[in-house]
Amino acid sequence: MKYALFLGCTVPVRAQHYELSARNTAHALGIEFEEMSGASCCGFPMKAVDAETSLLIAARNISIASALNLNIITLCNSCTAMLSDAQLELQNNSFYRKCKELGFAFPHDVTVKHYVRMLYEDIGIAKIKAAVKKPLSALNVIAHYGCHYMRPSYLYGFDDPEVPHTFDELVTATGATSVKYPDKKMCCGGSVLGVDEALAVTMANHKLQIAKTEAADALISICPFCTVMYEDNQRKAEEKFETQYNLPVLYYPQLLGLSFGLDKNAVGFRFNRVRPTALLAKVGGES
């Protein structure tokens, strides 16, 4: 199975452990990635300024994969939404014409999928379970979907936008327990970080507090932006709300890699800002 891997802005520079673990676990499952040379930002940052500009930037990225005749796999929720939106917009004649004017070509139809969705739909839970060598049954983790994993449903038609379950199943496949908790679909607050940091931290704190109440070993994220909120801004939340969380935030491929028995360097635990020392001790891995 071969895909075009769309990295976006944040992952290749700020979340290499996400990229690293994603590539290595995919490899373990027999998945190959082709690099999307010349791919830019997905376009999402320009959406609030001008929707058309953002869609055109996204469409250009799609044209790169189209030339490769490969479906796109994304690692970021927002990139997934933006590219999917452009994919839908391409059905619109006037938009398509504009793309043509800019010289974008779409020789092949391609689809856009989040990495996690790809695992769920194209690989399947059974195959993943079969690949698990070290079931993480000692772990209780909080699965955080992030908004643009399944919403808006008119773009994706995947999972249940009100009661999502696919990611929980994938987490459970590693042997870990995916804790049932309230406000599962709560936004991390990342989008308002630039507008009102205090508000954004308050939003992130909500789920951190839940994780603490549920005594979770880690929060499992699938979006670099959500990780920024829960991991990078964890200290700010702790300060603002005068508490201690010390909650490791793992990317799902890191968790998956751990269950596959991959080398700790292959999943990049040393890049996690909140060190998952206790967690690794719990599953018998080294820290």
């Binding site: 908004c147 643009h148 919403r151 808006p152 449903s153 008119y154 936004c187 989008s191």
Partner: peptide, 19 residues
């Protein structure tokens, strides 16, 4: 106006189907 996190929670629930 700029506080919208674009999370689409509203879109899913709008009874009039407004995104």
């Amino acid at each position: 106006l700029w506080f919208c996190a674009h999370c689409h929670a509203c879109t899913e629930r709008c009874p009039q189907g407004i995104p």
